[in-house]
Structures are given as C-alpha cells and as structure tokens.
Amino acid sequence: MTDQGWPLYEVFLRGKRGLNHVHVGSLHAADPEMALHHARDLYTRRNEGVSIWVVRASDITASSPDEKDPFFKPSGDKVYRHPTFYDIPDDVPHM
C-alpha cells in the first residue's frame, strides 16, 4: 500500500486572481491539511499559485473514455447553438 495508506489527492492551482483553478498533478498525504501543505511545497515553489484546492482522487467522478462518443453526442448535432449557423447579410452592421 502506498506510503502506509496515505491516500492520493489531486491538486488544483489558481495561478492568479481572475483565473480558474487548474489541475497540476497529485500527491499523497495523510489528511487534507497535509495535502495542502505538501501541495504548497511541491507545486508553488516559485509563486505559481494564489490558491490551492486538494481533492481526494477517490472522490472524483469522471466520464468514462469508453463512453466518450455517446456521452458527448447530445451536443454534436446542435450546430444551431453556434453563431456561425446563422446567415446574416454582410450589409447588416454591428452583428
């Protein structure tokens, strides 16, 4: 068992105010607080972040790659959701 049972945490960083948290990697820690400290030491040694989220990897539910096509299919045939679907004459201003 990894590190005597330390669970895996996924780490998300906000690079600066105004940006989303982005996944940067993972680490093992005994508890969430230790995961935050380790994430700071490991992923922000050069001021790469102003905020960190850590999430137990086992708490993440992800879409399965095997279902990829059917799962994302509902949006595939809805071209009318894109502005380019609509023909507007060139002489209509500000459109």
């Binding site: 005597q4 508890d31 969430p32 230790m34």
Partner: peptide
C-alpha cells in the same frame, strides 16, 4: 522516515471525526 508516515496516519485517523 517510516515513523513519520505512521505518525501522520495516526494523527489523521484521530482527527477524522472532527474533520
């Protein structure tokens, strides 16, 4: 480092209810 890893697990287990 084994004792540090074990101590951290024990600490985490103790504080789990609180968390």
């Amino acid at each position: 480092g084994a004792w540090v890893r074990e101590a951290a697990v024990a600490h985490a287990a103790k504080h789990q209810g609180q968390d």
